[in-house]
Design a binder for these strands. Sequence first.
DNA 1: TAATGTAATTGATAATGTCAACTATAATTC
DNA 2: GAATTATAGTTGACATTATCAATTACATTA
Lengths: 142, 142
Amino acid sequence: MSDRKSSESLFHLVHALKRQLFEQAEQLNVNLTPMHIRVMKIIDRKKPCTAIDIASFLRRDKAQVTRLVNTLIEKDLISKEPNPNDKRSQYLCVTETGTALVDEIAKIDANTMQMMTKNLSEEELSEFQRISSLMSKNLESR
Amino acid sequence: MSDRKSSESLFHLVHALKRQLFEQAEQLNVNLTPMHIRVMKIIDRKKPCTAIDIASFLRRDKAQVTRLVNTLIEKDLISKEPNPNDKRSQYLCVTETGTALVDEIAKIDANTMQMMTKNLSEEELSEFQRISSLMSKNLESR
DNA sequence: TAATGTAATTGATAATGTCAACTATAATTC
DNA sequence: GAATTATAGTTGACATTATCAATTACATTA
């Protein structure tokens, strides 16, 4: 029972969180998926940022990142700039339009986080944070 | 920053957990996906269990459940029995073959949970559990 | 310089998730 | 009791997310 609860309640939490973010994202009226939005946030925060950076942060295949990045470029939310250190790679940069979107996203995120954590103290949150990152490390160190 | 960490670290944790369960599931040498395995566990624990029960527990579309259930039936892991209370619906029951698989799954789950929580105390675990279910409720009560 | 490694792209395909339409049965209401 | 409405499950279509293998172009190492 206890180990079932451990994983199932986690799955439920993340499922609910994704749903919430997805619904909020729909209100943005850009036609972007949750993964596109995550990628926008990553590019915005990590400067400079390459496709590989995104793939390794998300632990996803490069192929997926390439496709996500392509639609963001089509929508003029980000652009590719030459990477002076490596001609194989490019820096991904948020455009002006993209910056406006990132701001919207930040508001949505703040709303969702506030909703999710409304009756929790700072201590509880940081404890939760600490334990979940410990668990991640445990699973990833192989 | 802090709200980014809140959701991203959760996403990472669940991603790592899914990966781990997926890899372990591969060792079972039945050709089942992680979702099939979750469904097997649900049917095994909730008796009697209908397709709707699964859909509502997983918060998934009935269509997806129908398909998951169909492959489990094809593989003779579960069977459909008439539901005496409702002719529209059927009870899903784990077969003998299925029971053997559920036992294997339990071992795998136990391994994964042990790996994930190896350096955590009972108190930390139950605190984590408590906080994550609070967060779920917060998100789902709309 | 040759061999090996890495960044990114493309094609193929699997797994997951959602919506809408439909059938059959159940529950409610008039 | 018949008509309406709701529910359980199925099917088709399709979007999203994910992975693998092969390839090109450039970088690094031997």
